[in-house]
Design a protein around this nucleic acid. Structure first.
Lengths: 219, 219
DNA sequence: ACAAGTCGGTTGTATTTACAACAGAAAGGA
DNA sequence: TCCTTTCTGTTGTAAATACAACCGACTTGT
């Protein structure tokens, strides 16, 4: 577990906490580290959760499949990102989405009660972590609003442009790499893959952008 | 300001705190109470925010208008609800949406720094309020995910059904009242009003539901 | 190297939606 | 009360999307 302390140090949750202190907090917070093989479910729709999760290694998708096999991708989780935090609250109902490992992944589980209940002992940084948690959830909240903004666009083209330009803004470069292949991007934006593929090519022909696989250049 | 203490007592933010203690905390937290006339902007897109807001009186819409006048409604705020919390974090950028008063409204402003920075003085319940804030943001987060679920549906009918049945689940009754008129509901679900109106009538003719104005009965 | 599977692009058709325009009912103001 | 405005439903047409089917390029595993 200690091997991932440098990873944790760079996360929003432990921002401002030194590596030594993180090591102490791991036991103070009762952290557990679980490993998931590619394709395995980290969390399943309908489950109850009382932990906040941090991805230490690998990558994940938060997604949902309906009875007819239609998939909807809510988001992508990269190394160091927090997830599950919205469902860790005691009165929160069950999970609405699955979380699935895209590759072999390691995940930290922190019992939410032990985070928000400040312990009186050695954890000097406990208060800081609670604040960090607040900021992290705020940020997640904003990114959900951002996604609602993509999704509220009426046409596939508008959805693509608003998504891609937002990614470019975040990565601060017109050259962007997205964590989705075509089918996944379509599931993320809730559009038809073939129509989206078609639209992307039209936009390329019109000189709006260039792409190759999951790398795009906005013009 | 004191007149709204009973309202605050019933909010998520002050859950578990007695009225007397709320009175003390109002000054401890440096609360401000602002009044807005019907139609006025409470917050504007592009502004920066360092407060968490609680609606004491009236009702609000969180919405966004683009250059062509197309409106997108993110959500409705009722009495006692918290808003703005996602943008109060120091590193959060500017607001992505407007907040507008649907009727004459009163809004509490709480400086977020004074909430998350526990004061050493009299506020016995400060820690509780921080936890409440965490749960409130979690809940907001879940409702955003819920909205993304409506929005990910491909057809107007599916959007309507998923939204209305979710409201029925929340209100725990097949008779529901929604805080939107037709145009607002269309802006909330990001569909065309006339097409939606058409679809609603088809669904009524098929016996799926009944409605009159903003009151619906699911069958 | 081969076979099987995945991925991205293309096309045609049926379905669905957006848009515009209009009309009756209801609500609000003078 | 009358007039104006808002709200809701209706219709027709143009545009966009979903769906299915197919192909070639590329990957993966044996």
């Amino acid at each position: 577990m200690k091997e991932f302390v440098p990873v944790l140090k760079r996360t929003k949750l432990f921002s401002g906490v030194g590596e030594d202190d993180i090591g102490v907090m791991l036991s103070c917070l009762g952290a557990r580290l679980l490993f998931f093989k590619k394709g395995e479910y980290v969390l399943r729709q309908g489950e109850h959760l009382s932990d906040i999760l941090v991805l230490a290694e690998g990558s994940l998708h938060i997604q949902k499949d309906d009875y007819w096999g239609n998939r909807s991708i809510l988001g992508h989780i990269g190394i160091g990102e927090i997830f599950g935090e919205a469902y860790a609250a005691p009165e929160s109902g069950m999970l609405l989405n699955d979380v699935i490992a895209l590759e072999n992944s390691s995940v930290f589980f922190f019992d939410v009660k032990r985070i928000i209940t400040t312990c009186s002992s050695a954890c000097r940084f406990h208060t800081l972590v609670v604040q960090n948690l607040f900021f992290a959830i705020s940020e997640k909240n904003r990114s959900l609003v951002q996604k609602l903004d993509y999704m509220s666009r009426r046409t596939t083209r508008e959805k693509l442009l608003s998504y891609l330009s937002e990614v470019a803004k975040k990565q601060n470069s017109p050259y962007i790499t997205i964590p989705f292949n075509r089918q996944q991007l379509a599931d993320y934006l809730s559009v038809d893959r073939s129509a989206m593929s078609n639209e992307l090519c039209k936009m390329r022909d019109e000189g709006l952008l260039e792409f190759e696989k999951n790398r795009f250049k906005l013009l």
